[in-house]
Write a protein that binds this DNA or RNA. Structure first.
Lengths: 128, 128
DNA sequence: CTCCATCGTTTACATACGTAATCGACTACG
DNA sequence: CGTAGTCGATTACGTATGTAAACGATGGAG
């Protein structure tokens, strides 16, 4: 066979917060990431460092040395992460069908006017 | 003040599989639940027992004595679980907006012809 | 009445996750 | 040159989760 596919390891909730920062802007140092998340989540720099390490271990982040420290950047695209998470949910909860999800969101008023308009536009796209 | 809201405790992946069985049909005994999930997930009865206990602790299941054993039934509706999980995902990944989720599903071919038709119908409903 | 099958409960143990302190290396300042 | 600050790495520790064996009560078969 060959290089074993390494299907992307699962990213946890806390780790996800760190990824978001780096998807927004990268590469960044640990300290810079902390500047973005420590305040809102009430984390210490140490926590961010741990999460960064774990994400590197999970192959979700790449490091590039910059003098004495590292610069971190995403190695998986946000799109692909978001895609797989969405699919995971749709599979688990709706048997892989997207329509029931939509029905749910609609019923629970999770759809704004704008959402509806946008979705309509998307549908029109799809049919063309 | 009062009864503290007890916002529903988080149900794990394995636990969710058990819930699905009971949402499908209930009340059931532990053995009956096992009949439904042990084979496909490769679990032993012991595992199911543990999961059932944890779900009872989490207030997700109710028990009713039946002779020497218990009958288990869901105490939270599937709809409400599905709703909160969906919202969780939309919040985490799409800033609470549902439209981008659709864009994603659409792009990744996660939408079948049928899905599209159904969603169109739902949209029509919403606008009336 | 005795014993076995079966319950639910308790205990177990490895891995993951959240959160962080500590440590050894190195660099920049004095 | 020594020292204080900073870096990534290592270690820590509590809770959650996946998975299950062991235990004690008990009810039904003989």
């Amino acid at each position: 066979m060959s290089q074993s596919h390494e299907q992307p390891e699962r990213i946890s909730d806390a780790e996800h917060a760190v990824m978001e920062v780096l998807w927004e802007r990268s590469p960044l140092t640990a300290a810079e990431v902390c500047e973005q998340v420590c305040e809102p989540r009430g984390w210490s720099l140490a926590t961010v460092k741990t999460l960064l390490s774990r994400l590197v271990a999970k192959q979700a982040l790449a490091t590039e040395p910059d003098g004495k420290r590292f610069l971190y950047s995403p190695r998986v695209a946000r799109d692909s992460y978001v895609g797989s998470e969405s699919r995971r949910l749709v599979d688990r909860l709706f048997g892989g069908r997207a329509a029931p999800l939509f029905a749910h969101l609609a019923e629970s008023d999770a759809l704004t006017e704008d959402d509806i308009a946008e979705i309509e536009a998307l549908l029109k796209e799809l049919k063309s």
